[in-house]
């Protein structure tokens, strides 16, 4: 397996999560034209049935570590399981999603294996068997290209930065079980409580379209028109830091360095100037549209389309126009 790219797949509600399918697509493209293979490992409880799905999304083979102790993420338990996987498979590369699991487990695994890790990559290419990973830094102002010299090369990859392959259920691949063999005596961390945030509508990080608004709205009541536009677009609603600091929107809506990092296909920024703090959270978006009355606002520099206008005059008509375009 010394030439395998190992994708750490994640399962939710009995199915492979979108980021894992994206990773498999990204791994396939990295392996193209080389003798490298793509493997997927699934950790959890009752996840064996998902192995075929990983193969359908591009894995040559799948490994399953199925253990009741892996039902919920616990860093100590998952680290033990991943160490076993790494030892047994000795992959050339291990890719995680930049998820709750990936951002916690990937660095831990890397330090334990005395290798390097590159976090939150948005672009990946292969040069002579080494991963060249591009990642935003300095609050999205700059991009760094990093490589790991040691093996395995470990990286986490930002959601929506890689395109998944078309699901092909006719693809065949071997599924192998790996025994987690968790030593409970060595588990020091205990998870005592878990609370979900019950966000209404579409989750920010999963949304294909995000409509965000800033302090320029003037008050929390003016978010009504933003929500209407989001509704017409099937979008999630985000907000700038200032808006959340003022308590107009919950902190969970904040897009930016100290909030959510989103990379939707379409990001509509309304009355947002585009401070570095905010851009750090949305610069990975494929298309940014800015609506701002200040023609010199920084947000226009990062945008594909822009309207220079007071938001209050243009958002309602835009909602209606979107409804017409979608209807027609």
């Amino acid at each position: 397996m010394a030439n395998a790219i190992l994708v750490v797949g994640e399962v939710a509600e009995g199915a492979l999560v979108p980021i894992s399918a994206e990773l498999l697509g990204g791994a396939r493209r990295l392996a193209e034209g080389s003798d490298q293979t793509v493997a997927c490992v699934l950790l959890g409880s009752g996840v064996e049935g998902v192995a075929q799905e990983a193969i359908a999304f591009g894995a040559d083979e799948a490994f399953v570590v199925d253990d009741p102790a892996l039902t919920e993420y616990n860093s100590d338990v998952y680290l033990q399981a991943m160490l076993k996987v790494a030892e047994q498979l000795s992959p050339a590369m291990i890719l995680f999603g930049q998820t709750n699991l990936g951002r916690d487990l990937a660095p831990r695994l890397a330090f334990r294996l005395e290798t390097g890790v590159i976090m939150d990559c948005v672009e990946m290419t292969m040069e002579g068997g080494r991963l060249m990973a591009t990642r935003p830094c300095y609050g999205g102002n700059a991009r760094a290209v990093n490589a790991v010299r040691t093996d395995p090369q470990i990286a986490t990859v930002r959601a929506k930065s890689q395109d998944p392959l078309e699901r092909d259920d006719s693809r065949q691949g071997q599924v192998t079980k790996i025994d987690a063999g968790i030593d409970q005596a060595a588990v020091r961390v205990k998870v005592t409580e878990r609370k979900g945030m019950t966000a209404e509508g579409v989750r920010l990080e999963d949304a294909d379209v995000v409509v965000s608004a800033g302090r320029g709205l003037g008050g929390p009541e003016n978010f009504d028109v933003i929500e209407e536009l989001a509704g017409a677009l099937g979008a999630a609603v985000g907000a700038s830091r200032a808006v959340c600091d003022l308590g107009w929107r919950p902190v969970s809506d904040q897009v930016g360095l100290t909030g959510k990092v989103v990379s939707p296909t379409l990001y509509i920024a309304i009355a947002i100037s585009g401070a570095s703090q905010h851009m750090a959270g949305c610069s990975g978006s494929k298309n940014i549209v800015a609506i701002n009355k200040d023609p010199d606002a920084n947000i226009f520099k990062a945008s594909r389309f822009g309207i220079v206008e007071d938001y209050a005059k243009v958002v309602k008509p835009l909602t209606e126009a979107v409804q017409r375009e979608k209807g027609g």
Partner: peptide
Amino acid sequence: KLTLERLYIPVSDSEC
């Protein structure tokens, strides 16, 4: 263990 191959300021592919 990690190398920095490049550091640059991304330029948007198109004008707004």
